[in-house]
Design a protein around this nucleic acid. Structure first.
Length: 568
RNA sequence: UGUCCCAUGGUGUAAUGGUAGCACAACAGGUUUUGGUUCUGUUUGACCAGGUUCGAGUCCUGGUGGGACAACCA
């Protein structure tokens, strides 16, 4: 008999609806058995966690089914786009752990798209409209009322051809004319009511400079770009559902080969409680200085989470847990926090830090004596290394860890009770000193020399265990605590007339400039994953200098005491 | 008075016509040199009405509720 069978390996995970489609397409031999996806961001902002969901789908599904995923910048609107974003997008995808096959730009296809547009004009399927934007909008009708046809709709083909050429010259006046596809002004799908496919823009393009003066719109670029590249599964979010018929229509006009047809599939966006995901709003927060930048640790951007101390694995785990469906969901932030705690529990190095310091004096510990106590880097790892931490007569503990009159279920320092100092001794609290105002300024205790960790006397049961730092052997540090960016659960739904700024949580950032941290952290690089024992997960900020280290709180530890305290 | 999409515990998500399960959250307890981790247990669910079927969360019809669509944005 084989010992310890492989049962666990067979653990079946159900496929999401997109995986099912891909699997069956592959099985049926569609597209000659090819799988090709693309991640198509517009380089007009930094990537946020909603993009991470798309990235995990686009790159992940290609990986799982032996396909390829390319990165394509959807750069058809030079007014909003910039190379700054092109660079940050690549950095963020790589940080998340994905590799693209090739990098493409929609702007690579400007000539092909132009030629296709010319072909449509020649076939009488497109025309230049010289009406104003307002007039065209009015003629569009409404979702419940049909539109009316433009007076230019049936102008001679030659005229449209000439005007289209003119649209691409420096002399063309922005807004004076557009190219429209001639489809059906009465169609119930608004996107079929002679959609605009080219508009005049003189703003220089980040890649093509001033070569072009007229640029294709999304609907005339996206599907065609997919087609030119050979994308088989064009996966996007739900709001593009109504664009799909138009996507297919242009593909049909382009198609030369029965064996290949790209397919658009839509899934639900990622929405998170207590934050916003709209690029417009995130940009406003940055531009107005309401946050420190795109990488402010309170931002839902990839670079924000990175700086906050989230690991790529934690983000992937979260996205895996919320799944892909067609239901418009609002995901609770606690799912994200659970994922990062779970990941960091095995990843983070444990160190001691005191955020709200209170002096503790061990009155029977010899003055001038210093011991080095071994501390485990990560107790989750059986092979974890240890490091040494100095112990002496004067220590820092947390203010929260002492209470003069304590309730019964308080396991920490209170006169007459014993607690353990982690990795050191069991001590008994003997009293405290207060200032005139009654604030506790020093706590006193006696240590039991027989109870040092590792000695036989250390075995006795003591309910509370505290972290500590030797006052003479630690470093000062600044610690930044972060809370939810918005004070309401769903700012997007509660905002009215752009007042989302008023919904910001005024206490989303708390800076503690006078904290203490173990010397062990001194040589560590920014982005090191740490756990401040008994407090939470923290990360070293890039603002750290040799003089003073700066830490960001990623997420607190689960805190059952806080819950109990509130019940008392 | 349109077209399309969606509806399973508090939240998110499974099941592919055959015992409604999982994760998070919540609650109770065991273990613990982190009030962490871990382990055990508990509470909570099919939008409504019809129909098809031996059998419907699943298929059909009609309602109800939510969302998307009227940018020279993507």
């Amino acid at each position: 008999m084989t010992e310890g069978n492989t049962e666990a390996v067979n653990e079946k995970k159900s496929l999401n609806f997109i995986e099912q489609i891909v699997e069956s397409d592959l099985k049926e031999g569609k597209n000659n058995g090819r799988l090709q996806t693309r991640f198509p961001p517009e380089p007009n902002g930094y990537l946020h966690i909603g993009h991470a969901k798309a990235i995990c789908m686009d790159f992940g599904i290609a990986q799982r089914y032996g396909g390829v995923c390319n990165l394509r910048f959807d750069d058809t609107n030079p007014v909003k786009e910039d190379v700054e974003y092109v660079d940050s997008i690549q950095e963020d995808i790589e940080w998340l752990g994905y590799k693209w096959g090739s990098i493409y730009y929609a702007s690579d296809y400007f000539q092909q798209l132009w030629d296709f547009a010319v072909q449509l004009i020649k076939e009488g399927k497109a025309y230049v409209d010289e009406q104003s934007a307002e007039t065209i909008a009015r003629q569009k009708g409404t979702p419940t009322q049909p539109g009316e046809e433009s007076p230019f709709r049936n102008r001679p083909i030659e005229e449209s051809l000439t005007l289209f050429q003119h649209m691409n010259t420096a002399e063309a006046v922005e807004g004076s004319m557009v190219l429209r596809a001639k489809i059906d002004m009465a169609n119930s799908n608004m996107h079929f009511r002679d959609p605009l496919i080219y508009r005049i823009i003189h703003h220089p393009h980040h890649r093509t400079g001033t070569t072009w003066h007229t640029y294709p719109m999304y609907d005339f670029a996206h599907g065609q770009s997919d087609y030119f590249e050979g994308v088989t599964h064009s996966i996007c979010t739900l709001e593009f559902e109504v664009h799909r018929p138009l996507y297919n229509l242009f593909i049909d006009l382009l198609k030369k080969d029965e064996s290949y047809y790209p397919r658009q599939i839509e899934f639900n966006r990622l929405n998170l409680t207590y934050t916003v995901m709209s690029k417009r709003k995130l940009l406003a927060l940055v531009k107005e200085g309401l946050v420190t930048g795109w990488d402010d640790p309170r931002m839902p951007t990839i670079c924000g989470y990175r700086r906050r101390g989230y690991s790529p694995q934690a983000i992937q785990k979260f996205i895996d847990s919320i799944g892909y469906t067609k239901v418009e969901a609002l995901n609770d932030i606690s799912l994200l926090e659970a994922a990062v705690r779970d990941d960091l529990n095995s990843r983070a190095t444990r160190v001691s830090a005191v955020l709200q310091p209170l002096k503790l004096i061990l009155t029977n510990y010899p003055e001038g004596m210093v011991e080095e106590m071994p501390a485990v880097d990560n107790p989750e790892d059986p092979n974890s290394p240890t490091h040494l931490i100095e112990f002496s007569r004067e220590l820092w503990i947390e203010q929260d860890d002492f209470m003069e009159d304590a309730p019964k279920n308080y396991f920490r320092m209170t006169p007459g009770k014993e607690v353990r100092l982690k990795s050191a001794y069991i001590i008994k609290c003997t009293g405290c000193k207060k200032d005139e105002a009654g604030n506790v300024i020093e706590v006193y205790a006696e240590y039991d020399p027989e109870s040092k960790s590792g000695m036989s006397g250390a075995g006795r049961k003591v309910k509370g265990t505290l972290h500590w730092l030797s006052a003479a052997h630690c470093h000062k540090a600044e610690v930044r605590l972060y809370d939810r960016l918005f004070k309401v659960e769903d700012p997007a739904s509660e905002e009215q007339d752009g007042n989302f700024r008023e919904l910001l949580n005024p206490e989303s950032l708390t800076v503690l400039p006078e904290c203490y941290v173990e010397k062990y952290t001194a040589g560590m690089a920014p982005l090191t994953y740490l756990q401040f024992q008994r407090i939470g997960y923290f990360n070293i900020d890039a603002d750290s200098t040799g003089e003073k280290m700066v830490f960001n709180r990623t997420v607190g530890l689960r805190d059952n005491w806080a819950k109990q305290k509130n019940k008392n």
